[in-house]
Amino acid sequence: MTAIRAFRRDFDAVEELFAFTSDAFGAEGIDQRLRPAVDLVLEELFTNVVKYGKKSRAAVHVEVARTPGGVRVTMIEDDAERFDPTAAPATDTTTPLEGRTPGGLGLHLVAKLVDSIEYRYVEASRQGRTTFSKALVRVAKEGEKDARD
């Protein structure tokens, strides 16, 4: 089973996103311990869409599905410009306070929190799809550094 809901492009809609994940986690039997990370990743992806997709008024759809030991979430943006959240430049988190400016941490946190993330863009339909997964216990592939370190 998959839970799906549409959201308006508005920063205030993040509260509706959280209500949806709460409902979906309950309905799908997904471990609630995954919710803080999933909510954070969804908020970062969604606010990016709102910030950088101002030309569109199309609703943003979010799908939540249970996977073995975890969850898979897909955000679907219609009438979208291509924007790959997995290709964001690295953020330097070692800069001293005087050199730090607010911003730039969202996609850095996304990369830290997910187990996997994929972006697809279909030019013909102008549709962007970002899918990420997260599980409670993740086994790193051979030779792979744990993304959460």
Binding site: T101, P102, G103, G106, L109
Partner: peptide, 18 residues
């Protein structure tokens, strides 16, 4: 819960106070 937007609030406050 805190997101990057919330972190921005804390950072801006820390810079002003410092």
């Amino acid at each position: 819960y805190i997101s990057s937007a919330g972190l921005g609030v804390l950072l801006k406050t820390q810079k002003r106070l410092a």
